[in-house]
């Protein structure tokens, strides 16, 4: 596993120490996970819904939540009623 690449994909900063420790542990964990390949799964449909339910849709109607202020108060950085984010367009 290219831990540098995967941590970038996951937007997760790892210390050098963590990278080293994880790489060793993943070697073991992946070896064990590779046991999966001992089983023949030709022709088996993967399970994506254990209940068998599909597309359980509700009516497309807005509902009043009632506690908007609390959600906004939880933003770490706020300006007026908006979450503040660093500039993404130059």
């Amino acid at each position: 596993m290219d831990i540098e690449k995967v941590s970038k994909l996951a937007r997760l900063e790892l210390s050098e120490e963590e990278k080293e420790k994880f790489s060793k542990q993943f070697e073991n964990i992946m070896k064990w996970i590779d046991e999966l390949n001992e089983t023949n799964t030709d022709g088996i449909e993967p399970i994506f819904s254990i209940t068998g339910m599909e597309n359980n849709l509700r009516n497309d109607r807005e509902e009043f939540f009632g506690n908007r202020e609390r959600i906004i108060k939880n933003f770490p950085n706020r300006e007026y009623d908006f979450a503040k984010v660093k500039k993404v367009i130059e």
């Binding site: 997760l12 900063e13 790892l14 963590e18 994880f22 542990q25 993943f26």
Partner: peptide, 19 residues
């Protein structure tokens, strides 16, 4: 993002996110 998540999550959570 990377710093927030790197400092905010503990070891096991990081391990599983990577996996």
């Amino acid at each position: 993002y990377e710093k927030t998540r790197g400092k905010g999550f503990g070891t096991e959570v990081k391990r599983r996110i990577i996996l």
